[in-house]
Simulated scan of single mutants.
Amino acid sequence: MTGDIQALLARHLPGYRVRSVRRLGTGLDNYVSEVNDELLVRRSRVSEPRKTRQEVARLAAVRELSPLPVPEVVFADDESGAIAYRKLAGTPLNLLEGSPSLRPRELARPLGGFLSAIHGAEPARMEELAPRDAYPMPTLLQDAELDYRDVERHVPVDQRPLVERFLRQHPPAEPELTRFCHNDLGAEHLLVDADGATITGVIDWTDAAITDPAHDFALIYRDLGPEIFELTVSCYEFEVTEEDRARILFHARCALIEDLAYGLSIGPRHYADAALAHLERTFA
């Protein structure tokens, strides 16, 4: 693996001296390595040149839109499906949960401004840079129930009725409006400074799509809680209706069940731990 990374860097950054290569993580579709504590190289398991070029163009557009720092592409390699970025400063927000230095209320205003800018992107322009994601609500609910049955035994007995009541409900109506969204705005993709009060970056745009903005708000609700969600909405320039809120809560609950199942099967355990920690407030 180190040899592959060195070969990529030699091809695209001739003369660049590689002092260290460290594997950071492995996902379902990609794996990421850190080079010299300054570059991140993400490689796809399956090379899809068109998707690689689309992501590079999408990140360029996002850098123009976003008031918060986002990854800057250093080079892309269509053949291997690799993209190298400059490493952004900061620590993933999920790693600071419970830290006395974390000040989540300070994050609401920049999050609201960020979502206003991203969701306000011209749809016609972003259609060329991101796919449409229109997964039907009833299917999402069915998937959530299947995931829950796989992990039900890990849920505290007194909290199971909260989840099961949700699974018996009818899903909300489909959204009337779609916008360009990050579409995976979990705490692990928000970088913050050592004080936990300043967002230093928004990372991992591989799932960005034209979809329901409720997806972005849902993960704020799930990971940061109802209070920070409400503060973020108060700093958002578009109207959030009661119908929007119903979809946000629906997606937050489905996403929590999905993370619980993922963390208890093939994913890192911390996904499951966070899901269990946030379950009661998300389903109450």
Rank of each mutant, 00 (worst) to 15 (best):
M1I: 15
T2Q: 08
D4G: 14
I5G: 08
L8C: 07
A10G: 14
L13A: 10
P14T: 06
R19W: 13
S20I: 06
S20T: 15
R23P: 15
L24G: 04
T26N: 11
T26W: 00
D29Y: 09
D29G: 10
E38G: 09
L39T: 02
R42C: 04
S44R: 12
S47L: 10
P49W: 02
T52W: 06
T52K: 01
E55R: 10
V56H: 04
V56L: 06
V56Q: 08
A57C: 08
R63V: 14
S66A: 04
P67Y: 03
P69K: 01
P69N: 06
V73M: 04
V73C: 05
A76S: 08
D77E: 00
D77F: 06
G81T: 00
A82Y: 00
A84N: 10
Y85K: 01
R86N: 14
L88I: 09
L88E: 11
T91H: 00
S101C: 13
S101P: 06
R103K: 12
R103Q: 14
R105C: 12
R109G: 14
L111M: 03
G112N: 03
G112F: 05
I118K: 08
G120H: 12
P123M: 09
E127S: 15
E128A: 12
A130C: 09
P138Y: 04
D143T: 15
D143N: 15
A144H: 00
A144V: 05
E145N: 01
L146H: 15
Y148E: 10
Y148V: 09
Y148C: 12
R149E: 12
V151Q: 03
V151H: 05
E152H: 11
R153V: 08
P161H: 05
R165G: 03
R165K: 11
R165F: 10
P172W: 03
P172A: 06
P172V: 08
E176T: 06
T178D: 07
F180T: 01
L185C: 09
G186F: 13
H189K: 03
H189M: 11
D193R: 00
A194G: 14
G196K: 00
A197V: 11
T198W: 02
I199D: 00
I199V: 07
V202M: 06
I203E: 01
I203S: 06
D204G: 08
W205K: 00
A208T: 05
A209L: 00
H215K: 07
A218Q: 03
L219Y: 01
Y221Q: 01
P226Y: 09
P226Q: 02
L231W: 01
L231P: 04
V233C: 11
S234W: 00
Y236I: 08
Y236H: 04
E237T: 10
R245Q: 14
A246P: 10
R247K: 08
R247A: 03
L249Y: 00
A255S: 11
A261N: 10
G263C: 08
G263R: 05
I266V: 15
G267P: 05
P268F: 01
A272F: 05
A275P: 05
A275I: 11
L279V: 12
A284D: 08
